[in-house]
Design a protein around this nucleic acid. Sequence first.
DNA 1: TCTAATCTTGACTTAAAAGTAAGGTATCGC
DNA 2: GCGATACCTTACTTTTAAGTCAAGATTAGA
Lengths: 158, 158
Amino acid sequence: MKISAQEEYGLRCLLQLARAEGMGESLTLSQLSRLEGISTANAGKLMWILSKAGLVQSTRGTKGGYSLARPASEIRLNRVIRVLEGEPAESHCKSYAGVLDACVHTGDCGIRPVIVELHQIVDNALADITLSQLLGTEANVDAALHQIQGIRPKDNRV
Amino acid sequence: MKISAQEEYGLRCLLQLARAEGMGESLTLSQLSRLEGISTANAGKLMWILSKAGLVQSTRGTKGGYSLARPASEIRLNRVIRVLEGEPAESHCKSYAGVLDACVHTGDCGIRPVIVELHQIVDNALADITLSQLLGTEANVDAALHQIQGIRPKDNRV
DNA sequence: TCTAATCTTGACTTAAAAGTAAGGTATCGC
DNA sequence: GCGATACCTTACTTTTAAGTCAAGATTAGA
């Protein structure tokens, strides 16, 4: 239930694009790679995933680069995370696939819908946050999250 | 941001123990392994993690086995998930560790606290659910989640 | 049209997570 | 005490995710 490296770096790159957008610029892979401290190859892979999903658009050739396909205020974190994490989340349990007659006590342990719902809870929480909300200062971010989820802002700037 | 195999199987085993507890029984590794369709070795590893964290207690020797260390109504999902996922979640970004001067636009991209807060959001959502709430039928589970999070119950029993 | 810059794509390598195996230790029942 | 049962722990193997490489394709500008 942790955010993966791909998810975090993809989100970071999107934020960089959102900032650049405000200045009427697009960013190349080498710029993104320098900004986030990852390789251009890895940045390219992330951008490819995001462009396939319609979140960013690319321009090839000299003066090319990447920019957001939609306004930052219309890009929600749940979509970003879902795109970057690949296949949709589902139960890892193989017992129900005919391997074993599991959960003998009741015939069904009732956990399958829980797994789905847990992801739904996360999705709902993330759907309330847009890219543009993350663009301000750290204080603003804390305030936004505080308002949305009732979470106390903490002093955890690493 | 997905639930991992370890997290799911650990949670499943806890539910089995909670059921057995209701009948005054404990469960051995081979029983757990049969119930959930995983190897005894793997079940043993999970139980070891959970017992280290004080969530389950073990009895050795003949007639031994595992049982919950506390009532199911006092075990909350956030604790279960956090224990099973290992080290606490933190930012994957290495740029701030002196490798590069990242986030040149503002000097700080402001995403670090967001990563922490995202995990906090998930934690808060999971803290509202106890093991005993998951023990009922699927319908009950859906109802419980609905009440807690305002999520519409869905027909997604796989 | 030629060249340099830039994205695109699939295959490959490396690192991390998941799962397995085996020997050790404690407990119970006889 | 002795043997059977069952947990405990470390090390190893397998699998999956993360990250890299390199050749190809596209565009802008000289």
